[in-house]
Computed example of a mutant assay.
Amino acid sequence: MTDPVRREVSAAGHAGHVFASKAPGGGPAPAVVLIHGIGASHRYLRRLHRLLAASMDTYSIDLPGFGATPRPGHTLSVADHARYILGATEQLGVSEFVLVGHSMGTQSATEAALQEPGRIQQLVLMGPVVDPKRGTVAQQALALGRDAVFCESPSSNALVLTDYLRCGPVWYFKTLRVMMEYPLVQRLAGVTAPVLVLRGANDPVADADWSRRLAGLVRRGQLVEVQGTGHVVQHTRAVEVRDAILAFTGLRAPAGEPLPGH
């Protein structure tokens, strides 16, 4: 597969980047859109992106202020992020799609599914936050620290750390306040699309009880746990995550495709 094409897209008054890959041969498969979490970028989604792109048109978005995108002049709300996702995909001609969010990206994805429910065919929440049992910044930091030390690979830690450095502490902590205040339980209850909650079985940020609770909030909710990994499950177990997403959308992986680089 060729590398994704980077597009600079301005939408909802802000600039971001979209990395687009067309599935070989086209066909009836839905498009899939991937959303990163706080401080991160498309980079820790690249393995999953490449795998999904063998079956579906795949788009990874760097939200405004993250990755190499311009920093907005004011703090963006979760609703602002959702408006950017919806506006950017509309500009690219992606009218309906499967929306996949990781960590804080699950909040943006949920909000987008509420803002324009007719466009979101299915919603995938990977490592969703914030569990009220870990409802303080200190508790979240402790859980992320445990995850980095005990559950992640050197490559996933390197990707996350370098993206945090690119994000910078000022923007990170402004966005952190937004993340901590978002009422995911209340908002997710209003989603009408089918929802897959996906977690690494060792994830201390999105534990089993919390993930099971979220899956039970919606009429068509499912929970999948990927064994032997933590919060950055889409990087450390990209094949298993790809398979879960394809099964959820009614597709199967193509035989014999190359695995993403390690």
Rank of each mutant, 00 (worst) to 15 (best):
G87P: 08
L198P: 11
G228V: 10
I85N: 08
P169K: 00
V18P: 09
V197G: 05
R50M: 03
G190E: 14
A193L: 12
P128Y: 00
H262A: 12
A238T: 01
Q234E: 10
A143H: 04
G93S: 13
L159I: 08
W210K: 04
G135C: 05
P72I: 07
A189W: 03
E8I: 12
G67R: 11
G135V: 08
H231I: 02
L63W: 05
W210E: 02
L63F: 04
E90Q: 15
A189R: 15
A23Q: 05
L184V: 08
A193G: 14
A206D: 02
V195C: 10
L114Q: 04
L51S: 01
A68G: 00
V33M: 02
A138Q: 15
L246T: 12
P194Y: 15
G250Y: 12
A68H: 05
M126F: 01
A238Y: 06
P30L: 01
C151I: 09
Q222Y: 00
L223N: 05
D147P: 09
D62E: 14
L86P: 05
I61S: 01
A113L: 11
L165V: 12
M180H: 06
R177T: 08
L144S: 06
Y59C: 06
V130C: 04
T75G: 15
H81C: 11
T58N: 04
A138H: 14
Y182H: 15
G65E: 03
I35A: 01
V18K: 05
G101I: 06
F150D: 10
P258G: 06
P4Q: 00
A138D: 15
A255I: 05
P72S: 09
V78M: 10
G25I: 06
D131L: 05
F173G: 00
A53R: 09
V232I: 11
R177P: 02
R220P: 04
L48G: 01
R199A: 01
T89H: 03
A215K: 07
A158K: 12
A247S: 10
G65W: 03
R43L: 15
A54C: 13
L86H: 10
R213Q: 13
S55E: 10
V226W: 15
V130I: 11
R166P: 05
P260R: 11
Q121T: 14
G25T: 02
A79M: 02
V137N: 07
V185A: 15
V98E: 02
L63I: 06
L161Y: 11
G39V: 08
V124K: 03
Q222C: 02
A141W: 03
P4R: 00
G221P: 08
H262N: 13
A201H: 07
G93V: 13
P132I: 07
A23S: 08
A82N: 07
E152M: 14
Q222R: 10
A244Q: 09
S95W: 00
T106R: 00
S55C: 07
L217N: 06
V9F: 09
A12Q: 11
V218L: 14
A206F: 02
L34I: 07
V218P: 08
